[in-house]
Amino acid sequence: MTTADLQTFLAGASVDDAVFALRPDYRALLIAVDGLGPAAAEGDAEELLVAAEAAAAAALEAGLVEELPHVAAWRDAYRAFGAKPQRTRNSAEALLRRAAKGLPRVNRLTDVYNAVSVRHQVPLGGEDLARYAGPPRLLRADGTETFETTVDGETVVEHPEPGEVVWCDDAGVTCRRWNWRQAPRTGLTPTTTSALFILDALDPLTDDQLDEAADELVSHLVRLGDDVRVERRVLRAPAGGAD
Results as ranks from 00 to 15, higher is better:
P135G: 12
L124Q: 01
T110S: 15
R105D: 07
V122K: 04
V50H: 14
V71Y: 00
E53A: 10
V112Q: 06
A115L: 07
P85H: 04
W74D: 03
Y132R: 13
A45R: 09
A51C: 09
Q121M: 10
A115R: 02
R89C: 01
A41H: 14
A58Q: 11
A72N: 02
R75K: 07
K101R: 14
P38L: 03
G43T: 15
R89N: 01
L124F: 05
V50S: 09
Y78I: 01
Y78V: 07
R105W: 08
L103Y: 01
A57M: 08
A58P: 06
L68V: 03
D111F: 03
Y132F: 15
A40I: 00
A83Q: 13
A52P: 11
L68Q: 10
G82A: 05
R75D: 07
G126D: 01
S91C: 12
E47I: 12
A80G: 11
A130E: 14
V33C: 07
P69T: 06
V122D: 10
Q86A: 15
A55S: 14
F81L: 09
A73W: 00
H120S: 02
E61S: 14
G37I: 00
D34N: 15
L48P: 06
P38I: 09
A55P: 11
D76G: 04
D44M: 14
A58W: 03
A99S: 09
G37P: 08
A100V: 14
L96E: 00
Y132I: 10
R119Q: 13
R97A: 06
G134Q: 13
G43Y: 10
A56T: 05
A39F: 07
E127T: 11
